[in-house]
Amino acid sequence: MIEPEISTIKPEPADKSKIWKIWKVAIILGLVTAAEFYVALQFPESWKSFKIFLFIGMTFVKAGYIVAEFMHLAHEQKSLMWTILIPTVFVVWLLGALFIQADAIYQAIYF
């Protein structure tokens, strides 16, 4: 049986600059998401490929901040960082291979 106890450990005081850094990343993530909305709803329909390019770019900006700062990967050992990042190259390979396949299926069905 675990009984709740009164803590005897005195916590260290918070470092204001560290907390501010966390909120700064949060504000950047919020602003990028807001920008995505602006692009989705305000940019003309005819700019379709440019919009998709912007969306993917902004997604990677957000993913970068989450992985580097929130998940702390940028501050780990460089070897750990590359161990995590390099295998994602295989995703690009899968993407390339399957999209070529998808186009072939589309051509076969509709042309």
Binding site: V91, L94, L95, L98, F99, A102, D103, Y106
Partner: peptide, 14 residues
């Protein structure tokens, strides 16, 4: 990634 890429593939074949 496999899920999202599969989504892209099926979307492009339509």
């Amino acid at each position: 990634s496999a899920f999202l890429i599969a989504y892209g593939v099926i979307r492009f074949r339509h």
